[in-house]
């Protein structure tokens, strides 16, 4: 091997060695970044993404952290995650207890998003699913004590559909009613107005990301009555209908009312359901 060839060989080795070193170093950085990104993509349960946000994993790929949604929110509820926050750096969120989404009809935050991280197909704010409200503390919610509150029910922008009041018997007093707030996931947008309005020191109704708030029925489950509806007939041999031998003028309703004495219905202008009275004036909305 000549001198020049050897020199060439040495250069080549040094070049390859340096390149390998750099590649290894950068590769290690990559592993670190990958691991960090997994950890950084976890979010606290009370951090809620703006309306139209893609599912979290897609969102982190789509959001370029520009903050235009933050700027275009007329109520200034949105923040960008800062380094040290438990949310992916630079991504937008709001905290319902202190600043819930006011559900603007024109959804300016979505319009501002340049990358569809907030889905531009969302045209009706009532279709958004930022999270789901949950009556999380049934021990402290004063409705469960038989006290009249209904604040969450009343501030809900999707009145009586996202949160309804369920009348139950007050077993403590034995003679009063409980008006229990019940959230319906088919209508609740997760805006968090109920959480902010909750009168307790710590809200009894809270908005959580949907995946935390919802259970899921096993895929193999079949609900008999729905299958029956689908089939249009009973899928098992129907029970023979029970018949009572009742005096004349009396019937028995198996499904609800029980014993019916014909001709005895009370004549009153008020509905027997107190919720109808509570809702009067709102029902035309």
């Amino acid at each position: 091997m000549s001198e020049a060839e050897r020199k060439n060989e040495m250069n080549r080795r040094r070049f390859l060695g340096n390149m390998l070193k750099t590649a290894c170093g950068v590769g290690l950085v990559g592993l670190g970044l990958g691991a960090y990104s997994k950890r950084a993509s976890s979010m606290p349960a009370n951090y809620i993404r703006p309306p139209g946000a893609l599912p979290e994993e897609d969102f982190l790929g789509a959001c370029i952290r520009c903050g235009l949604c933050v700027r275009d929110c007329p109520y200034d509820i949105l923040f960008l995650g800062e380094v040290g926050d438990e949310v992916a750096t630079g991504t937008p969120y709001f905290i319902a207890r202190t600043g819930p989404c006011e559900m603007c009809e024109d959804i300016p935050c979505v319009v501002a998003c340049p990358t569809n991280a907030l889905d531009h197909d969302l045209k009706d704010i009532e279709d958004s699913r930022m999270g789901l409200a949950v009556v999380i503390d049934q021990e402290n919610c004063i409705a469960f004590h038989g006290l009249r509150c209904e604040v969450c029910f009343n501030v809900c922008p999707i009145r009586n559909r996202a949160i309804s009041l369920d009348m139950q018997h007050n077993t403590r007093s034995g003679k009063h009613a409980l008006f229990i707030p019940v959230v319906h996931s088919d209508a609740c947008t997760g805006c968090g107005l109920c959480e902010r309005a909750c009168i307790l020191e710590e809200a009894a109704i809270k908005v959580f990301p949907t995946h935390l708030a919802k259970g899921e029925l096993g895929k193999h489950y079949r609900l008999g009555w729905k299958e029956k509806e689908k089939a249009g007939e009973a899928l098992v041999t129907p029970d023979t209908e029970h018949r009572y031998n009742l005096p004349e003028g009396m019937r028995y309703d198996q499904q609800g009312e029980g014993l019916i004495i014909e001709g005895e219905a009370e004549k009153t202008p008020f509905s027997s359901n107190p919720l109808d009275t509570l809702n009067s004036g709102f029902m035309d909305k």
Partner: peptide, 13 residues
């Protein structure tokens, strides 16, 4: 990294 991890990983740091 975005191809492998599926997010804008670099923007985290």
């Amino acid at each position: 990294l975005p191809l492998v991890v599926g997010g804008i990983v670099w923007e985290l740091v």
